[in-house]
Design a protein around this nucleic acid. Structure first.
Lengths: 196, 196
DNA sequence: TGACAAATCTCCTCACCTGTAGTATACTTT
DNA sequence: AAAGTATACTACAGGTGAGGAGATTTGTCA
């Protein structure tokens, strides 16, 4: 979703073509390999946006090299963008890969859970170190937004580490619990429910 | 990636068919609509796992209804699972949708950034409330792992809220910064670099 | 000095994996 | 008959990885 709307926003500024959009997007989110977008995604997204009537092709330039297909925002696109601004973002809290790994580890016999946790802790510390250094190197005069972004990442990594400690501390307790079974659903037509 | 390996783990326990795997997966990650997986994903993933040689179809049951195609783990699959256990998970720190929205908001003229932030804050508080209640309702005797998961979500939401406050406090400063331009890359063959 | 190879950018395409949404058929219970 | 589970499939959207044809600059060598 993010890329889709980011492209709309960039086209609201001025008409552009695919390659240019890609560069502008990466600059927008901080440059320096934060959020790399693959060309394929840009062009595919543009096609869908065009099909949805949110953008329109307004010209083609051909000067020597390959064609540049230039897109611009339509009124419907401008509206969609406004709507996006007025809607809150709900995070993907589910789908935490490490949580799944931990659960699967509990399931599979002979898994060394302490090691599992240790590996994850190392990974998190490495990331923390990397982002902290990036943060120090960044110039908050010219890249303030990028700095704020790094702050957020660091805060999340610290939260992850604290959580990991909690998990390790209670590991014995967790291991004592039985593996969860899916509860069977009643089949057939449900009984008529009389009002409470 | 998570679903892929979770299916491997569940098959390591015992051979199963698609529908059963879906139910088992959702039970594993806590039930109660945490992490809903669509049937399509399960079947598509199973096909790819089979093609990759990590699982194999070991039988078909047909008792009345549709066929049940039963899969089991292969030795290669068991190996892949072990490798997963021994690898750290690096989070998707980039691709934070709200961050992009904020940046796009700075770009587009006439955007009310305070409102943008306010909407997001409301959303986060609602989520926080929802998960906090779920956490209180959960029974940490029988669902300890699920409780830990909720703890993590809450910690992250709190971090998001603190970060949002920071952003709002420094908003004027952020708005004063120019929109980032993609830096042009030098074309042609790069100059030979002599060693430092 | 002029020709050509090397490296890299510009712009777009294709093939694939992951995940979401909706559909279809058969069975089971009220 | 109605309603809902059990089991599977199809279609599409989002995202990754690889790559290809042409333009542009630099290094090199006769």
């Amino acid at each position: 979703m993010s890329v889709r709307y980011a492209l709309l926003g960039l086209l609201a500024q001025q008409p552009r073509h695919g390659y240019e959009l890609r560069a502008a997007f990466e600059a927008l989110v901080g440059g320096r390999d934060t959020w790399e977008v693959k060309p394929g995604q840009v062009y595919a997204t543009l096609e869908r946006l065009e099909e949805a009537g949110l953008i329109a092709e307004v010209g083609v330039e051909k000067e020597g090299g390959p064609e540049k297909r230039i897109y611009a925002l339509t009124p419907a696109g401008r509206e969609a963008l406004q709507e996006w601004f007025h809607t809150g973002v709900v995070g993907d809290h589910h789908r935490d890969e490490f949580f799944v790994k931990l659960m699967v580890g509990l399931l599979v016999e002979g898994t060394d859970l302490h090691r599992l946790i240790q590996v994850q802790r190392n990974t998190l510390y490495q990331e923390l170190h990397r982002f902290t250094r990036q943060r120090m190197e960044a110039d908050s005069q010219t890249e303030l937004a990028y700095v704020l972004f790094l702050d957020k990442v660091v805060m999340h990594l610290e939260a992850d580490l604290r959580w990991l400690d909690m998990v390790e501390a209670r590991l014995e307790e967790i291991q004592r619990q039985p593996t969860p079974q899916p509860e069977p659903k009643p089949r057939g037509r449900p009984r008529a429910k009389r009002e409470a």
